[in-house]
């Protein structure tokens, strides 16, 4: 250890911020989760590696899967029809398993704009879009998106004209909603890959519109 320091853990001449340690006391539910997980492993019902793999698989899901589905629907009218009427089959066709909940795809048009929320908790099409953004789970979004959706969207930079109806979907039970955003003008002839790049997570929740960057 260098001699010009009067304490024993800072070996640098300059200070830099460190990641704060998260070693406060566990909450009740954190303790419960650890206890249940350890019991399941101890009793041989699951292995630690299976738990890890499940978390890894969940974290590997990204909005890119949804974007691929939307881009294909934009490019192929027959697929779009299938996506709206048989969303599960359409999703599987592109290799995306929508999971055990039922998928509903709602289409934004010149007359209707769809917005998804779960007021009771944070239901979200995780198997298609991955984990929801933090704001989606916030009490503010959950309570305000049903009550004043136009104001909430405007705070996200999206103004919906009064001649377009706003249709909010409260995902309270067994359905999971995916918004099929409007294909922007000027994207005619684009490849599906190029189209998918402008289909962001927020456009599939309905809090933003797809646009040419």
């Amino acid at each position: 250890m260098s001699t010009h320091h009067d304490h024993d853990h800072d070996h640098h001449d300059h200070k830099h911020p460190t990641q704060p340690d998260v070693d406060g006391p566990l909450t009740y539910h954190q303790r419960l989760e650890i206890a249940v997980r350890e019991l399941l492993i101890e009793k041989g019902i699951v292995t630690a590696d299976e738990v890890r793999r499940a978390i890894e698989a969940m974290d590997a899901r990204t909005p890119a899967q949804g974007a691929r589905i939307v881009a294909h629907a934009w490019a192929d009218p027959a697929y779009k029809k299938k996506l709206l009427t048989e969303p599960r089959e359409a999703s599987l066709e592109l290799g995306v398993d929508p999971g055990v909940t039922k998928l509903v795809v709602v289409e934004n048009t010149d007359k209707v704009h769809n917005l998804v929320v779960c007021t009771l908790c944070s239901c979200y099409p995780r198997s298609i879009l991955g984990l929801p953004p933090d704001w989606y789970k916030s009490r503010a979004y959950r309570s305000r998106a049903v009550r004043e959706p136009r104001k909430v969207m405007s705070e996200f930079g999206l103004e919906i004209p009064d001649d377009i109806a706003v249709r909010v979907h409260d995902s309270t039970a067994d359905m999971r909603y995916l918004v099929l955003p409007k294909r922007p003008k000027g994207t005619e002839g684009w490849s599906e890959e190029k189209l998918a790049a402008i289909v962001t997570r927020d456009t599939m929740i309905g809090i933003a519109e797809a646009r040419i960057p």
Partner: peptide
């Protein structure tokens, strides 16, 4: 929406869909 929230700010066609058993 206008029936659900008496002070709803938005046009008459706005709706909310809820899943109900």
């Amino acid at each position: 929406q206008k029936k659900v929230w008496p002070d709803y700010q938005g046009p008459a066609g706005d709706t909310v869909d809820v899943e109900i058993y």
